[in-house]
């Protein structure tokens, strides 16, 4: 047999074997600056504390709260059912299963907006969709949901409705947080399977 064939066969095996030992691919496709800017200026990437409270009370199954503060702060106080993913370990493989779950709306929050916003940009870069930020963070949460201030007498009916809702929510959360221990309900989390995006139409 020709020696060249032997050489070619070995080359082919090495090339194919190389695929097996290559480290996992991590180079995400670069998001276009225009696209990123467009997404950043969309107000729809923020959700209000009222919306979060409503989803929590209604036990919305698509809600995934992600606390991006450090673990110490998370242990001190966190929203019910929130998962703690500190910002500095957001890329760690331990947490990769919690990001980008199909049909789940991931809402980042921290004390204010800054850490959550940074986490949002990172997640965007990882090509994860359905990600949001809780506007104002926990400070706003305390101010609006836990200790709501009554609106002035001259306020509109809507504002009074909102105040009533907040008072109810306040009771719900402060009451519930005593009776129900903080649950580690991470079990309903399912691993996302990468879905095909647009593929070209059939061959022959």
């Amino acid at each position: 047999m020709n020696k060249n064939y032997l050489f070619l066969a070995i080359l082919m095996i090495i090339l194919a074997g190389g695929l097996l030992i290559l480290p996992e691919r991590t180079n995400y496709t670069q998001i276009n600056p225009e696209d990123l800017l467009w997404d950043i200026i969309q107000p729809s990437r923020y959700v209000t504390t009222d919306q979060v409270a409503k989803m929590l009370i209604e036990q919305d199954p698509t809600l995934e709260l992600i606390d991006v503060r450090c673990a110490k702060e998370y242990d001190k106080f966190a929203l019910p059912n929130a998962i703690n993913i500190p910002l500095d370990s957001i890329l760690s493989p331990n947490y990769s299963d919690y990001l980008g779950i199909e049909d789940m709306n991931a809402i980042f929050y921290c004390n204010d907006d800054i850490l959550a916003d940074q986490a949002w940009v990172i997640a965007k870069r990882m090509d994860i969709s359905r990600i949001y930020i809780m506007k104002g963070g926990l400070n706003c949460w305390i101010k609006t949901i836990i200790q709501p201030t009554p609106p002035p007498e001259t306020a509109s009916g809507d504002e009074f409705d909102q105040y009533d809702f907040r008072k109810g929510a306040s009771m719900y959360f402060t009451g519930a947080s005593i009776s129900a221990p903080k649950s580690d309900s991470k079990s309903q989390v399912t691993i996302k399977r990468k879905k095909k995006t647009k593929a070209t139409a059939g061959g022959c």
């Binding site: 593929a199 070209t200 139409a201 059939g202 061959g203 022959c204």
Partner: peptide
């Protein structure tokens, strides 16, 4: 280039 492979029978179809 095309995101799909070669094809022969599709043309007849």
């Amino acid at each position: 280039i095309a995101g799909r492979g070669l094809s022969a029978s599709g043309a007849v179809k």
